[in-house]
Amino acid sequence: MRCDEVAELLPGIVDGGEIAERRVQRHVESCLRCQAELVQYRKLLKALHVLRTEVLEPAPGLLTDILAGIEAAGERRAVRSLLNGRNAAYAGGTAAALAAGAVGAILLARSARSRKVALAS
């Protein structure tokens, strides 16, 4: 295998993410240049892992801004649920009124029918 072919594979095999074929392993074992490059990739990964432990200082005011954004979202949500509740109440009231109206209409119709029967007899 050529070094340039192996070099393309090193970024994937450095952390065991990809398994190196036997012929790639053999090349690296016998090639100082590719070994050096592999060591550099290992150093790179180590340095990247170390970044995980660092916390960068946020600019002042960020926390306040985040909390204010959540506060506003919370208020919007509360208003929405209140409106939804009112809408539900209106809908319920309307349905009840319609039902009551329908029952009333049926009762009126029945009483008118019974009056007609009484007059006819």
Binding site: C3, P11, G12, V14, A36, E37, K43, L44
Partner: peptide, 26 residues
């Protein structure tokens, strides 16, 4: 995965530049 390979390769080349890298790979 492809992007990860490219990123690692570019970072390595920038952190550990090797003189005449391309010629030596021949």
């Amino acid at each position: 995965k492809v992007r990860l390979h490219r990123a690692r390769k570019q970072l390595r080349e920038r952190l550990f530049p090797m003189r005449g890298e391309e010629e030596a790979r021949a």
